[in-house]
Write a protein that binds this DNA or RNA. Structure first.
Length: 257
DNA sequence: GGCAAGTTTCCTGGTT
DNA sequence: TAACCAGGAAACTTGC
């Protein structure tokens, strides 16, 4: 049995980078480690469900790879309709934790409805950092075409009119933190130093973009290392999962925005 | 079809 | 021991 409407990576990515809620991200400000209790989980988007999962993983220090996120390619309404057994089936030993969390949130949301007299649907309340940006429904977000990111600059040696190179893909994730749910983060923004937080997740995203479901971080990192020679990346010795943009990488500096 | 660029895949060996 | 890093070699994909 699967609680997911689709278990393929496509759906997972739609969840991660999906257009529908690309701007609806109050939750990106999760710095307090709280999701908006005002936002009833019934109204969550797929993206928000995914973020909630990430937060649970973080809070309980559970390895994100220990549950199949694609099993949660569902929106808040569907999530709330899952039974305890459904959670067990979908997330194994993590299921009870998820069930407990969502139950609490449902009660919390119900309480807010009662006292708040259905003030407004949370989805309508989301601020959008990119008000001019909209994505056609059903289209997977491609960070390389986001207006905030400089147009994917041609690679130093040859332009690729079709799309993004790996380093541009990485750069564009970094430049769009609201769509970067803890995958990669800047270590030193001014120096161009960044670190992979979820290396395998990034690899899967890259694999999705290249239509290659067997992509792994091992392979991705090999491609990254080829950039050293071309000075698109520089080595950062002694630090795992840490890379630095080199002199031939374009478009990552704030001054270049 | 040939070529080049940019990966992708596999591998061995070293480091953390 | 696992995960990651480094880099060689060959194969593959794509555009020209």
């Amino acid at each position: 049995m699967s609680v997911t409407t689709s278990t393929n990576l496509d759906s997972q990515l739609t969840t991660t980078w999906g257009p529908t809620n690309s701007c609806s991200f109050v939750m990106s400000g999760y710095t307090s480690r709280l999701w908006p209790h005002e936002s009833q989980p019934q109204f969550w988007s797929k993206y928000q469900v995914w973020e909630w999962l990430q937060q649970i993983m973080d809070m309980h220090q559970i390895d994100a790879s220990s549950i199949p996120f694609q099993n949660f390619d569902i929106d808040g309404h569907q999530l709330c309709s899952l039974s305890y057994q459904d959670f067990i089936r979908a997330a194994g030993s993590v299921g009870p934790i998820l069930f407990h969390s969502i139950t609490e949130l449902k009660w919390s949301g119900q309480y807010h409805v009662e006292i708040g007299q259905l003030e407004s649907k949370p989805e309508l309340d989301y601020s959008c950092p990119f008000p001019d940006v909209s994505y056609p429904s059903g289209e997977i977000y491609d960070p390389s075409i986001h207006p905030l990111a400089p147009a994917a600059s041609p690679s130093p040696s040859s332009p690729d009119p079709r799309g993004t190179h790996l380093w541009e893909f990485i750069r564009d994730i970094l430049l769009n933190p609201d769509r970067n749910p803890g995958l990669i983060k800047w270590e030193d923004r001014t120096e161009g130093i960044f670190r992979f937080l979820k290396s395998e997740a990034v690899a899967q995203l890259w694999g999705k973009k290249k239509n290659n479901s067997s992509m792994t971080y091992e392979k991705l990192s090999r491609a990254m290392r080829y950039y050293y020679k071309r000075e698109i990346l520089e080595r950062v010795d002694g630090r795992r999962l840490v890379y630095k943009f080199g002199r031939n990488a374009r478009g990552w500096k704030e001054s270049e925005k």
